[in-house]
Computed example of a mutant assay.
Amino acid sequence: MVETSLWMQKVAADPGHSRWYIERFRAMARAGDDLVGEARFVDAMAARGSHILDAGCGPGRVGGYLASVGHHVVGVDVDPTLIEAAEQDHPGPRWLVDDLAELDLSARGITDQFDIIVSAGNVMTFVAPSTRVQVLTRLRAHLKPDGRAVIGFGAGRDYEYSQFLDDAAHAGLTPDLLLSTWDVRPFSDDSDFLVALLKPA
């Protein structure tokens, strides 16, 4: 049995957590805040009409933007409330409720592998620690041989960058480029954020 994600543990402790998260981003969008920096980054590295998996898509801000500029997007999140919001706010992509640790999109009739897999918004720090390698392995299984996985998360979230890179290696992924921000600044030992572009080993 797969351990419950840290996100769903938060939801269990506070049933209003998902709705708060959704409304927070809706308010930011109404205020004109820039919510698509990660998506612009992915779009810049993607050929037109790429097949992109938004892994841990939340309410859909990244995948929604990528679909709006012409990519074929599938978004997956473990939280059905977030997926419902994604369907409402960002029609176009295929939004699915699923656990990344058990992800098998072929069972949903999606047999194509992806050019790019993006996991923004600290997703890797919300999966259950015991499933981290399993999650990365499932992402690797859905990636084209020449594809890239783009994973970003902040420091201070109980997941050291060195451990993440070791876990990625165990999952069959190797770094292609490491950055410290979504606006393409170099990664260094004292960076407080990591954007890792990974390729199949």
Rank of each mutant, 00 (worst) to 15 (best):
T111A: 15
G49I: 11
V2S: 14
L53A: 03
R30T: 09
D112H: 12
F25I: 04
A107K: 02
D99T: 13
F25S: 03
G58Y: 04
V133L: 11
L103Y: 03
G109F: 11
R61I: 00
D79Q: 01
E38Q: 08
P15M: 11
A29C: 02
A86L: 03
R24F: 15
A55C: 08
L100P: 10
E38F: 13
G32Q: 07
I117M: 06
A86H: 07
A86F: 06
A107L: 14
S5T: 14
L82M: 14
A27H: 08
S130I: 02
P59N: 10
E87Y: 04
T131P: 04
S119T: 06
A120L: 01
Q113N: 14
G121M: 02
N122C: 06
S18W: 04
A67G: 11
R30F: 05
R19T: 15
D112R: 05
L66A: 09
L103N: 11
H90Q: 05
D33I: 02
F25E: 09
I110Y: 00
P129K: 06
P91Q: 07
T125H: 10
G58E: 02
V118E: 13
F25Q: 04
V42N: 04
L82H: 06
G58K: 05
H51M: 09
D34G: 05
G64N: 10
K10W: 05
V74Q: 00
E84L: 11
R40E: 14
V133C: 13
P80W: 01
A67S: 14
M8H: 03
T4H: 08
D112Q: 12
V133F: 12
P59Q: 12
A46T: 11
Q88L: 13
L35T: 00
A44W: 05
I52D: 00
R24C: 05
G75M: 09
E102Y: 03
Q88N: 10
M45E: 04
D79Y: 00
V36M: 08
I116V: 15
A29R: 01
R61K: 11
A55Q: 04
G56T: 03
V127L: 08
R40I: 08
A128C: 02
Q9H: 07
W95H: 09
A46C: 05
L105T: 13
P15T: 10
F126A: 14
A128F: 08
R94Q: 14
G32E: 08
L6W: 11
W20R: 12
A86Q: 07
T81I: 12
A101N: 02
